[in-house]
Design a protein around this nucleic acid. Structure first.
Length: 544
DNA sequence: AATCGACTTG
């Protein structure tokens, strides 16, 4: 008879046979370090048996880091908070290792404020203490704070290591600032640990991600070409980056190079990257081909994300029927993302009120944090059907349901490295008056070229409802473009704009014209991809 | 005796 698998053995005999008192810690450590989730869970069970076992020694400073690691992995907030009180009860709150673990635990649970509170109380901070709090800020989206803490860390004379730089680069990526990212890169080049830092795959991977997300795919490529050792993630990030920039053929070339020449085995993420390339390029049959090869050739079980990709490819290309068929055939329950992408496609295709309403209802049933997008899309459906009463109704529903509107913003980075952020209808900028005057001039010049604003696609501006007939000149990226032109953009000096939402159809048309009339290169990063505007054309080929 | 790890579709 074959021996039982290790997991089964571990769970079946452990509760009945308590370990010898002295080996609790080392067992907990082994389980917590394992990559197998069920064993990580076992670490927590063992901790409980330790508490109940009268012959066992009380938990000490070697116990908590590992139990907390398990809690962090599962984001078990209440269990971990209980552990925190045990830490205090056993008098270990001052231990740096234990405190660092608590900071990391709170950050994995999304409790940045708790993490910060613990961090601030650490009397003997170590490099790891700084690393975990900086990472906590980055994973929770507080990029500016991460950089502020990094500066403090340097003032305190701690030497940054690969973890520090990985987080710092991640913060620059989140802000979307190319010049900040280059500053971080330069810091590494000047560091005494230069060789060590620049040979690390993790650091290089975060640099590739940084450069491709900050608009410089050329620099991303350079890092990729020069790094000594590439792992699958390096390829994945590169494939995604190229796809995001609309360099679809090259993106697929990298996949081919990775699998055929380097003989690397693609993983589930690689296929998300390749499918995303197909999606940006509108390559429907290729997308199906890769999905099929993933399942049948590589034997990778498709996850809901993969279904999401293929459904989006189909729907965006106008094959809404086939997309719906895929939804009905997939083995897992569709999530809000899938319903939203179908609804989005219906909006663009004017696929009919009934279907759109049905999809919106489905999308709203699955609660997640992006419901405001559904309301915005639904109001667009009603607007294009000229059902303005229903547009108003949606707006009322939104406020009644207390839906948090995601405020749209556009930020622009100037050559001097300063970032200027605008929201719709913003008048806060010191040069606001000039910006609005210039915008009027721009619109007049464009109208001479035959441009007519088209508000049909946007009954709401970046989460704010507008009255029909209102000018769309308030869209935040228009303010950014106007400001960019004022600061002397021109040939060789592109305007770099970052948006948190997607570009609307009318703004897209307008930006193309601006790039032609003003001979300006405009690079816009929206929620999911880059648009490079030049000579009246966009790199997305109007497919986005 | 130890604490920090990522690339994801819309």
């Amino acid at each position: 008879m074959p021996p039982p698998p290790p997991t089964a053995r571990a769970t079946s005999h452990l509760p009945s046979l308590p370990p010898p008192p002295a080996s609790y810690n080392s067992l907990i450590r082994t389980y917590a370090r394992s990559s197998v989730p069920s064993l990580k869970l076992e670490a927590l069970r063992l901790y409980h048996s330790l508490l109940l076992d009268p012959s066992a020694p009380p938990p000490n400073r070697y116990t908590f880091p590992f139990v907390l690691k398990s809690c962090a992995f599962f984001s078990f907030f209440s269990e971990g908070s209980q552990l925190h009180s045990h830490v205090v009860k056993f008098g270990l709150a001052c231990d740096t290792y234990v405190a660092n673990s608590l900071v990391h635990f709170y950050s994995s649970c999304g409790k940045l404020a708790c993490a910060r509170k613990v961090f601030d109380k650490i009397s003997e901070k170590s490099r790891v203490s700084w690393n975990v709090i900086i990472d906590a800020c980055v994973t929770n989206g507080d990029y500016q704070e991460a950089l502020a803490l990094f500066r403090e860390m340097q003032v305190e004379k701690f030497v940054p290591d690969i973890y520090t730089f990985q987080s710092v680069i991640g913060a620059c990526t989140g802000i979307g600032s190319l010049s900040l990212g280059m500053w971080a890169h330069k810091l590494m080049l000047r560091s005494t640990d230069r060789e060590l830092l620049l040979s690390d795959a993790l650091v290089n991977n975060s640099l590739i991600d940084l450069y491709s997300k900050c608009g410089s795919i050329a620099l991303a490529r350079k890092v990729f070409d020069e790094m000594p050792v590439r792992d699958i993630a390096s390829w994945n990030i590169m494939i995604l980056g190229l796809a995001m920039h609309g360099l679809v053929d090259e993106s697929i070339d990298y996949f081919t190079r990775m699998t055929s020449i380097e003989k690397l085995r693609p993983n589930a993420i690689t296929f998300i990257a390749v499918l995303s390339a197909c999606n940006h390029g509108g390559l429907v049959s290729e997308g199906k081909k890769y999905f099929d090869s993933m399942v049948n050739h590589y034997r990778i079980e498709p996850r809901i994300e993969h279904y999401g990709c293929i459904i989006d490819i189909l729907a965006r290309a106008g094959f809404i029927e086939e997309a719906l068929e895929t939804v009905s055939k997939m083995p897992c329950k569709p999530d809000a993302v899938i319903w939203r992408s179908l609804l989005d496609a219906c909006c663009k295709k004017n696929a009919g009120l009934e279907l759109s309403e049905l999809l919106a209802r489905q999308a709203l049933e699955v609660k997640d944090d992006a419901t405001s997008g559904v309301y915005v899309m639904l109001s667009r459906v009603y607007a294009s059907a000229n059902r303005w009463n229903d547009v108003a109704l949606v707006r009322r529903l939104m406020s009644e349901d207390g839906v948090k509107k995601e405020p749209g913003f556009s930020s622009i980075e100037l050559d001097d490295g300063t970032m200027h952020q605008f929201v719709a209808g913003d008048t806060c900028h010191p040069r606001s008056e000039e910006i609005y005057d210039n915008l009027q001039t721009i619109e007049k010049r464009l109208e001479l070229q035959g441009y007519r604003p088209d508000s049909s696609q946007a009954p709401m501006i970046e989460g704010v409802a507008v009255v029909k007939g209102d000018s769309l000149r308030l869209h935040s990226e228009r303010l950014a473009i106007s400001f960019g032109l004022l600061t002397g953009a021109g040939p060789g000096r592109p305007i770099r704009i970052l948006k948190n939402l997607r570009v609307c159809k009318d703004c897209h048309t307008m930006t193309k014209l601006v790039s032609q009339v003003y001979q300006a290169e405009i690079i816009v990063r929206d929620r999911i991809r880059f648009h490079h505007f030049r000579d009246g054309k966009c790199s997305c080929m109007d497919y986005w």
